[in-house]
Simulated scan of single mutants.
Amino acid sequence: MPSSRTPSPSRPGDERTTDLIRWAAFSCVLVPVVLLWYGTSLAGAAGTALGLAAVTAVCRLLLRQSERGAARSLPGNHPPPAHHRGRHQRTGTGVHRGGRHSGGNSPVG
């Protein structure tokens, strides 16, 4: 019998990310239950659950942002605008800008 869940044409890595988030959410429930089983206080287990949920939410956000960035860099998409170098298009430090130099360590020939 064919599966009722058919993969939809979505962003690359979307299914793996979804599975990862599901496992993380499962851990957010499982870890406090195990802590309670081994005698940790209810407040300690609740604090752990909240901490794990916060970390999971941040990781999910970063994964989604990374996927969007990867989708933008696929062939056919326009590259991001070039970085502006600043005033007078200078790069580097003052050593290579020209002008007078002190004698320094260079030999005189």
Score class of each variant (00 low, 15 high):
69 G>Y: 05
72 R>E: 03
15 E>Q: 13
60 R>F: 05
108 V>S: 14
44 G>I: 03
83 H>M: 11
94 G>S: 08
64 R>E: 08
12 P>C: 04
34 V>G: 06
70 A>V: 13
19 D>Y: 07
1 M>Q: 03
61 L>V: 02
19 D>H: 06
10 S>M: 11
71 A>I: 15
7 P>E: 14
106 S>R: 11
83 H>Q: 09
82 A>R: 06
56 T>N: 04
2 P>I: 06
42 L>W: 09
81 P>R: 12
35 L>M: 12
51 G>N: 15
67 E>S: 07
1 M>C: 13
65 Q>I: 08
32 P>N: 01
106 S>A: 12
64 R>I: 07
81 P>M: 09
3 S>P: 01
33 V>N: 13
97 R>H: 15
92 G>W: 02
76 G>L: 12
102 S>T: 13
47 G>F: 00
2 P>F: 09
66 S>V: 06
25 A>G: 02
63 L>Q: 04
75 P>Y: 02
104 G>Y: 06
68 R>Q: 15
85 R>P: 00
109 G>H: 08
39 G>Q: 08
105 N>C: 08
56 T>A: 04
51 G>S: 07
26 F>H: 11
19 D>P: 00
3 S>C: 10
96 H>Y: 12
3 S>M: 04
31 V>W: 01
65 Q>H: 10
17 T>V: 10
3 S>E: 10
13 G>N: 03
39 G>V: 02
36 L>D: 01
65 Q>P: 00
74 L>S: 04
25 A>L: 15
101 H>M: 11
36 L>N: 02
31 V>Y: 01
98 G>M: 02
98 G>L: 07
2 P>T: 15
104 G>Q: 07
65 Q>E: 14
20 L>W: 01
38 Y>E: 14
17 T>C: 02
19 D>C: 11
55 V>M: 09
12 P>L: 09
13 G>C: 03
95 V>I: 06
106 S>T: 09
18 T>K: 05
25 A>R: 01
43 A>M: 09
10 S>L: 14
18 T>D: 11
87 R>N: 03
87 R>C: 11
29 V>I: 11
